[in-house]
Each structure stands twice: as C-alpha cells, then as structure tokens.
Lab assay of single mutants.
Amino acid sequence: GIDPFTGEAIAKFNFNGDTQVEMSFRKGERITLLRQVDENWYEGRIPGTSRQGIFPITYVDVIKRPL
C-alpha cells in the first residue's frame, strides 16, 4: 500500500551513484522519498522496482516532502 509518510519527487537530472548505498536514476523518473538523511541527501526508492538508496537533494524536484 501507500505509506502516508513518504514523499515524492521527480528526477531533474541523471544521477549515477558511486557506491552501493547510492541509487542511480534517470531524468524524469518518479521517486518515492523515504526520509531526508541530512541537508544534502534523501533516501528513496523507485516504485515498482527493487532500487533503493540515497541521492543528492539537488538532483530532484520535490513534489511532497517525506514526514
């Protein structure tokens, strides 16, 4: 089901994660935001896939912030 505490964002740019914990994505992908890790990073996942990880806040347009 849908978790009411998650947020939502759209990727503004392609992001290629450097490490296992970073999640790569392509511009235009819809991302579920799980939490804000710190002032620069979100943790999120791509709905319908097993992809999950952290990524820079500046790479996405936030539609709804996670609670």
Results as ranks from 00 to 15, higher is better:
G1W: 10
G1P: 12
G1V: 12
G1Q: 12
G1D: 12
I2H: 14
I2S: 15
I2K: 14
I2V: 13
I2F: 13
D3L: 13
D3V: 13
D3Y: 13
D3S: 13
P4A: 15
P4T: 14
P4N: 14
P4L: 14
P4R: 12
P4D: 15
P4C: 15
P4S: 14
F5G: 14
F5D: 12
F5P: 10
F5V: 10
F5Y: 13
F5H: 14
F5A: 12
F5C: 15
F5S: 12
T6H: 15
T6E: 13
T6Y: 15
T6P: 14
T6F: 14
T6Q: 13
T6N: 12
G7E: 08
G7Y: 13
G7S: 09
G7H: 13
G7V: 10
G7C: 12
G7F: 11
E8A: 09
E8D: 10
E8Q: 10
E8H: 11
E8T: 11
E8R: 07
A9R: 02
A9P: 00
A9I: 04
A9T: 03
I10M: 07
I10S: 03
I10Q: 05
I10G: 01
I10F: 06
I10V: 12
I10C: 07
I10R: 06
I10P: 00
A11G: 08
A11P: 01
A11T: 03
A11Y: 01
A11L: 02
A11D: 00
A11K: 00
K12M: 10
K12Y: 03
K12Q: 06
K12I: 13
K12A: 07
K12T: 08
K12N: 07
K12V: 09
F13Q: 13
F13K: 12
F13S: 08
N14H: 10
N14G: 06
N14I: 04
F15G: 00
F15W: 08
F15L: 02
F15V: 02
F15C: 03
N16F: 13
N16S: 11
N16W: 11
N16T: 13
N16R: 11
N16H: 13
N16D: 14
G17V: 04
G17P: 06
G17W: 03
G17C: 05
G17A: 13
G17E: 03
G17T: 06
G17N: 04
G17K: 04
D18F: 13
D18E: 14
D18G: 14
D18R: 15
D18M: 15
D18V: 15
D18Y: 14
T19R: 14
T19I: 06
Q20S: 14
Q20A: 15
Q20K: 13
Q20I: 14
V21A: 15
V21C: 15
V21E: 15
V21G: 15
V21Y: 15
V21T: 11
V21F: 15
E22K: 10
E22N: 06
E22C: 12
E22Q: 13
E22G: 06
E22P: 02
E22T: 08
M23R: 00
M23S: 01
M23E: 00
M23A: 02
M23F: 08
M23I: 06
S24W: 06
S24V: 03
S24L: 02
S24N: 07
S24M: 04
S24Y: 04
S24G: 07
S24C: 07
S24Q: 05
F25A: 02
F25L: 06
F25W: 02
F25I: 07
F25Y: 01
F25C: 02
F25N: 00
R26T: 13
R26K: 14
R26S: 13
R26M: 13
R26F: 11
R26H: 11
K27Y: 06
K27A: 12
K27P: 05
K27H: 07
K27E: 10
K27S: 08
K27T: 08
K27Q: 10
K27M: 09
G28Q: 03
G28F: 05
G28R: 02
G28N: 06
G28S: 04
E29R: 02
E29P: 00
E29Y: 02
E29C: 03
E29N: 02
E29W: 03
R30D: 03
R30V: 11
R30A: 07
R30I: 13
R30N: 06
R30Y: 12
R30H: 14
R30M: 11
R30Q: 08
I31H: 00
I31A: 00
I31G: 00
I31R: 00
I31F: 01
I31P: 00
I31M: 04
I31N: 00
T32D: 09
T32K: 09
T32Y: 08
T32Q: 11
T32H: 09
T32C: 11
L33H: 05
L33N: 05
L33I: 14
L33R: 02
L34K: 03
L34I: 13
L34W: 06
L34A: 03
L34H: 04
L34V: 09
R35H: 08
R35W: 10
R35T: 06
R35Y: 08
R35G: 09
Q36E: 10
Q36F: 07
Q36K: 11
Q36P: 07
Q36I: 10
V37T: 04
V37W: 08
V37M: 08
V37R: 05
V37Y: 08
V37P: 03
V37D: 02
D38F: 08
D38N: 12
D38W: 07
D38K: 08
D38M: 08
D38L: 06
D38R: 08
E39G: 11
E39P: 09
E39I: 09
E39M: 10
E39A: 12
E39N: 09
E39W: 08
E39D: 13
E39R: 09
E39T: 09
E39S: 10
N40E: 12
N40I: 14
N40R: 10
N40Y: 15
W41I: 06
W41D: 02
W41F: 09
W41H: 12
W41S: 07
W41Y: 12
W41M: 08
W41C: 07
Y42L: 10
Y42D: 00
Y42E: 01
Y42T: 03
Y42R: 02
Y42K: 00
Y42M: 10
E43Y: 14
E43A: 07
E43G: 03
E43W: 12
E43Q: 07
E43I: 07
E43S: 07
E43N: 04
E43D: 06
G44K: 00
G44N: 00
G44E: 00
G44S: 00
G44R: 00
G44A: 02
R45I: 10
R45K: 12
R45C: 13
R45V: 10
R45G: 05
R45P: 00
R45A: 11
R45N: 08
R45T: 11
R45F: 15
I46M: 05
I46A: 02
I46D: 00
I46E: 01
I46T: 01
P47C: 08
P47Y: 09
P47E: 15
P47K: 10
P47D: 15
P47I: 09
G48D: 08
G48C: 09
G48Y: 08
G48V: 02
G48W: 07
G48I: 02
G48K: 05
G48T: 05
T49I: 02
T49K: 04
T49S: 09
S50C: 12
S50L: 11
S50D: 13
S50R: 10
S50V: 10
S50Q: 11
R51F: 04
R51C: 05
R51Q: 04
R51W: 03
Q52T: 09
Q52N: 07
Q52F: 11
Q52R: 11
Q52I: 09
Q52D: 03
G53K: 01
G53H: 01
G53Q: 01
G53L: 01
G53D: 01
I54E: 02
I54S: 03
I54L: 10
I54A: 04
I54C: 07
F55N: 00
F55Y: 01
F55S: 00
F55R: 00
F55A: 00
F55Q: 00
P56C: 04
P56I: 03
P56S: 02
P56H: 04
P56M: 04
P56D: 04
I57G: 09
I57T: 09
I57W: 05
I57N: 06
I57C: 09
T58D: 13
T58P: 08
T58G: 12
T58K: 13
T58S: 14
T58A: 15
Y59E: 03
Y59L: 10
Y59C: 10
Y59W: 06
Y59M: 11
Y59R: 06
V60I: 08
V60L: 05
V60D: 00
V60H: 00
V60P: 00
V60F: 02
D61V: 14
D61L: 13
D61G: 05
D61R: 11
D61Y: 13
D61M: 11
D61T: 14
V62F: 07
V62W: 06
V62N: 03
V62G: 02
V62R: 05
V62K: 04
V62H: 04
V62P: 05
V62S: 03
V62I: 10
I63V: 11
I63H: 06
I63Y: 07
I63D: 05
I63C: 08
I63E: 06
I63T: 07
I63W: 06
I63P: 05
K64Q: 10
K64D: 09
K64G: 06
K64Y: 09
K64N: 09
R65V: 14
R65H: 15
R65C: 13
R65A: 15
R65F: 15
P66M: 04
P66Y: 04
P66N: 04
P66F: 03
P66R: 01
P66T: 04
L67C: 14
L67V: 13
L67E: 14
L67M: 15
L67S: 14
